[in-house]
Each structure stands twice: as C-alpha cells, then as structure tokens.
Design a protein around this nucleic acid. Structure first.
Ligand SMILES: [Mn+2]
Ligand SMILES: [Mn+2]
Length: 563
DNA sequence: GTTGGGATTG
DNA sequence: GAATGTGTGTCTCAATCCCAACTT
DNA sequence: TGACACACATTCAA
C-alpha cells in the first residue's frame, strides 16, 4: 500500500513562535494513531484534557516537557510568545498537569536555588551547623544533605521567595511518549528543530501507518525498566542491588533481550571494578553479551581458579563467539597452561603469522602523530589522507545505501532515523541478503564506481551510520576508486558484513594513493607508548591474508636541538 | 572580574 | 616487553545566558 | 551520549 506520510510536513516552521507546540502535537498525534491499543486509560484521558486547554497553557507545558527535570521556578517560565505564565500555570494545575508549590526534599531543592538564595533561605540553619555564609555551594549542600532535613514545600523552605515553584506531573507518560515515538531514549525533541534548521537531514523512508517501535505495552515498560536500572548504575547505586531488580529470565523479544543482556553486562563489569566478583560471576555465565565469557575467564584467572578457567577456555576455543574472543583466548590459554603445567592445545599453534610490514620514522614533535606522519609521507604524486574508519565506512555506506535504507518491516518507524533500527542485530544482513548481493555485485560488473559517486551526489549530507560527510570529499573517493581494486573493496565489505558492529572500526589511520601507478597503501601510525589494538590487528591480519598493502608506522620523537 | 560547564534556544 | 585495566579527548549545531567556581 | 582511539599506570614473567 502506498499510504506514505511523506507529503505531510513533519517539522514546524521556526517562523511560528509556537513551533515547539506544533512539534509536540505531531508526536502526540503520531503516537495516538499508531499506539492507540497500547495506551492506558489515563494516557487517553491526558490527550483529551491537554488538547482542550488554552493554547498558551499547552505551550507552557510543552516548554516544561522539553526542558530538563520536572521542577521549575516560575521566574524561569517567562516566554515572549506565552506572556504571563501565571494564568497558564493555574489552568495546568486545575487540569492536574502541574502541582503548585510541591513538597521538596533537600536534594531536590538544592539545584533549584543559587548560593545567594541558599544563604537567604537557610543561612540560620547553616550557621547553626557551623557553615559560614561565605562557604561554597558545594559545602553548604553537603551539610544540608547530611542534616537529614524534613521534606517541605517550596514556600516553607523559603517563605520570602520572590517567585513560586511548580512541578510538572505525568513524568512517566512523557517519558513513554518520547520512547514510543523514537524507539529509544537517545533522541529527543531537539531532533525536530535540528531537522527544520537543516543541521540534520534524514533519509526519507516510506513509513506505513502500522510502523511502530513496540508491538506490546510490556515491551515499552521493560525498556523503561532497563533504562532506569542503567541510570541508577550511573548514579552510583551498588550493582548487587540493581542485579536483584534485573529480570533473570530472557525476554521473548530478542532485541529487547539483547538490551537486557547489555545492562546485565554493564552491571557485572561495574561489580568487577568494585571488587564484587560475586555479583559479576552471578551474571557472566548466562550472559550472551559478546564479551561476557572473556570477562568470566578473566575473573576466574584472577581468583586463581585455573582449572575451571581452563575448562571454560577449552570450550570457548571450540566454539568462539567472535574473533575478539579468539584473540583473548590466544593470550589467556598459554598463561593457564603454564600455571597448570599442561601443554598448549594443538590447534592454538596454527597460523600465527603476524609479520605485518613495519615502517620506522623519527619526527619532530607534532600535536598529533597521525598528522605528523601524514605530512612527512605526503607528496604531490602520492597524497596521504587521515581517514581512520571514515573511508571504508563511506565507500561501504554509499555503495550499499539502498540496502541499508531499504524499508523492511520494523526497520524504520519515525522521520528521524540515521539508520535502520536493526542494524546491529544478528539477522540484519540475512534479512537483506539479495539487496546486499546486488550492491556488492556492482563490484564484479564494474558499475560500483558510478554507484558510489552517484550516491555521494544524491545523498550528500543525509545522515547515515556509515558515512561521515565532513570526513570525505569527492577527490578522496575518486582517488580511492581509482587506486583500490574492486576485489580489495569487495573483500573488505564482505568482512564488514560478517559482523557490522565489530568490523566497522579498526581501520588504519592513513591511506596513501599513487594515482599514476594505480596503487595505494594503508598506514597505521603508532607513536611511542601506543600499541596495536585487537580490532586493528584483525584488520591488519586480514589485509595481509588478502595481499592488501598495509604497514604499521612506528614513530619516535626527534630530540630537540636546544636542551 | 574572568572562565568554564551546564541548560536553553531556534 | 606483554597484557590488562582505566582514564581522556573528540567528535559535538552554534549562540546565548546563568551560575559557581577560581590568581583557574 | 556513546563509539572509538589513544595515553598512562600496574602487574607479571622472562
Ligand atoms: Mn587512530
Ligand atoms: Mn594509530
């Protein structure tokens, strides 16, 4: 069906002083239309109440929703297009959307007042605790927090306050509104403005009326729960306690479950850092996070459980989860075998030839080693570019643009996608097999150069997970397409497609082109005290295996003349 | 008095 | 010297305002 | 608000 919504303007013009309210309505309508069956009675009720409020009251509420926190000084609610906030606040309070003069605990109060105000409001209390009026806000705050003061309303904290305080209600609903619209918590209301200003441009993917991020209400709630656990971890709560609140059973929904695994892994990692290996080891064994088993092995090794570690490592070696795990096992196994006085398993001695070409350079000190080397090696006939992951990313992203942005069910569900939502899921490539085959097929037919350059022109500036437009230009692409054989590109793209998350990074810092000889080389720069990372080693090994020219350039600093 | 890190804004 | 773990900086959209720190 | 690469410290084994 062709019921795409592209014809409807998404973002409100900034000429409209109430542009943000229109954007808020857009989201509200969008969610109401697509999630009608998932909304609660009180959420339906909110929509009815809100839309029947006066426009300025709606606007004031939208302003609050888009700001940080839920508590606002009325003196900080002045907006030219709204005028006097008092009547708006009153009608919002009558509608139950805000609370006037709410009760605040000490921790909530502190960010709402300045040092000077704190002195006025609580100078006596502080003085009694031995804190002078000249103390810093930090010192005052610590004293007040330690004083265990009773929560009270704003007007009781500071009866002489020149303004009032309001609390925005329905925080959980606004959180879910944003989540149901975007499908994540990373994006927020500013997307509308950035898009309207043209700072961010998004690929226009046909969206059906059925497109939505969540199929069931439980999924929304679980997503929120996981998010809150992560926030509490970041706020410093003990991983052990958070682990108790983390659902132990896997979710049926695989993408939601991988989020659960990620939170679990972060809990375990933080527990490890804090020395709580009990919590860590309660999580790792059942965790399917790509790094979980390596972490489990490291903990076992640290604890001296060499026999257990050996058993697990042997299993892992038979069916490794990924290449990074193999690299860890290759370093871990010899240590374990030494401890246990056992020989290395036979299969571990095979194929370890990391004789990557080396290049040594001594350079005057420069702010960045990479730029120093780039400058030193650059000739007019052999230009050097500092590209890191951006060149291969761009070539891949441009060649495979149509596969990446193909409107598969569930991949796109709002107008602000920088890429498909399932990009890093295990079945991403499989679901688009024929599409990627078509894109990579152009490498065999020879039309890939035109495809890449055409896409560059056609999509320039449109957000993509692989193309960083500021990092590339047409000259760079032309050099690359002229100097690099299609065969090399195909092999690299195939490796990227095997594991997009793991293999989209680790490319060498520099690339040098010899257009006259139709030749190139990749250069990974290493300053003193820097060493190859695992993902870099994997790419270098791959380049060598496929006869692609790559070197590691080790830099030492030149002694300065005057000492 | 300046500066640096935020929140806010379009 | 190798391996590991941890901390930092850089992307940031850019201009403005507020506020809490300081011979920065 | 992460992803990514690098810098730096610590530990351990020849
Ligand atoms: Mn680099
Ligand atoms: Mn490097």
């Amino acid at each position: 069906m062709n019921s795409t919504l592209r014809s409807i303007p998404v973002t409100a013009s900034l000429d409209d002083p109430f542009y943000y309210l229109r954007n808020f309505h857009f989201v509200l309508d969008w969610v109401a239309e697509r999630y009608d069956d998932l909304l609660t009675d009180s959420e339906h009720e909110f929509i009815g109440i809100f839309t029947s409020l006066p426009r300025t009251s709606q606007a004031l509420m939208a302003r609050m929703v888009m700001r940080k926190g839920v508590h606002f000084r009325t003196s900080r609610l002045r907006y030219a297009e709204i005028g006097d906030p008092a009547p708006c606040v009153t009608s919002l309070a009558e509608a139950g959307l805000v609370t006037l003069d709410p009760e605040l605990d000490t921790a909530t109060l502190l960010p709402l007042v300045t040092v000077g105000e704190l002195r006025q409001a609580l100078g006596d209390t502080l003085a009694a605790a031995g804190v002078p009026g000249t103390a810093s806000k930090k010192a005052m705050s610590e004293t007040l927090l330690a004083s265990d003061l009773e929560a009270r309303c704003w007007s009781a904290w500071w009866p002489q306050a020149p303004d009032g305080l309001v609390k925005l209600e329905h925080e959980a609903w606004f959180e879910r509104l944003r989540l149901m619209f975007f499908g994540n918590f990373r994006q927020d209301w500013s997307e509308f403005v950035l898009a309207e200003l043209g700072i961010q441009r998004f690929e226009s993917v046909p969206l059906s009326r059925e497109s939505r991020a969540f199929a069931y209400r439980e999924e929304v709630e679980r997503y929120c729960q996981l998010q809150h656990l992560r926030e509490r971890l970041d706020a410093g709560e003990a991983p052990e306690r958070l682990h108790e609140s983390l659902p132990a059973e896997p979710y049926a929904n695989t993408w939601l479950d991988s989020r659960r695994e990620r939170v679990a892994f972060r809990l375990a990692r933080e527990a490890e850092r804090q020395g709580d290996t009990g919590t860590a080891m309660a999580i790792y064994p059942d965790c399917r996070h790509p790094e979980a088993r390596v972490r489990q092995l490291r903990v076992m090794e640290r604890q001296g459980n060499y026999e257990l570690a050996y058993q697990l490592a042997s299993d892992a070696l038979v069916s490794p989860r990924n290449e990074a795990e193999v690299q860890h096992l290759e370093r871990l196994m010899p240590r374990l075998c030494r401890r246990l006085g056992r020989p290395l398993p036979a299969r571990m001695n095979a194929g370890r030839s990391d004789a990557v070409d080396r290049l040594a350079l001594t350079l005057p000190v420069t702010p960045s080693v990479e730029w120093g080397v780039a400058t030193a090696l650059h000739h007019d006939e052999a230009p050097v570019y500092y590209v890191e992951n951006t060149l291969f990313g761009a070539l891949f992203g441009l060649l495979c643009w149509d596969a990446i942005f193909a409107p598969l069910p569930g991949a796109f569900f709002h107008p602000f996608h920088t890429g498909p939502s399932d990009l890093y899921r295990g079945d991403f490539v499989a679901r688009r097999e024929s599409l990627f085959a078509e894109c990579l097929g152009t490498l065999d037919v020879g039309t890939y150069r035109q495809r890449i350059l055409d896409t560059y022109q056609a999509k320039k500036g449109i957000a993509s997970p692989f193309v960083h437009w500021d990092a590339i230009d047409e000259t760079l692409l032309e050099h690359a397409l002229h100097c690099m054989p299609a065969d090399h590109l195909r092999r690299c793209f195939e490796r990227m497609l095997v594991d997009l998350k793991a293999n989209r990074a680790g490319f060498p810092d520099l690339i040098q082109f010899w257009p006259c000889q139709q030749r190139y080389r990749l250069i990974e720069v290493k300053g003193p005290g820097d060493r190859l990372q695992d993902n870099q080693r994997r790419w270098l090994a791959f380049f060598q295996q496929h006869d692609m020219p790559a070197v590691v350039c080790h830099v030492t600093w030149q002694e300065s003349d005057h000492a």
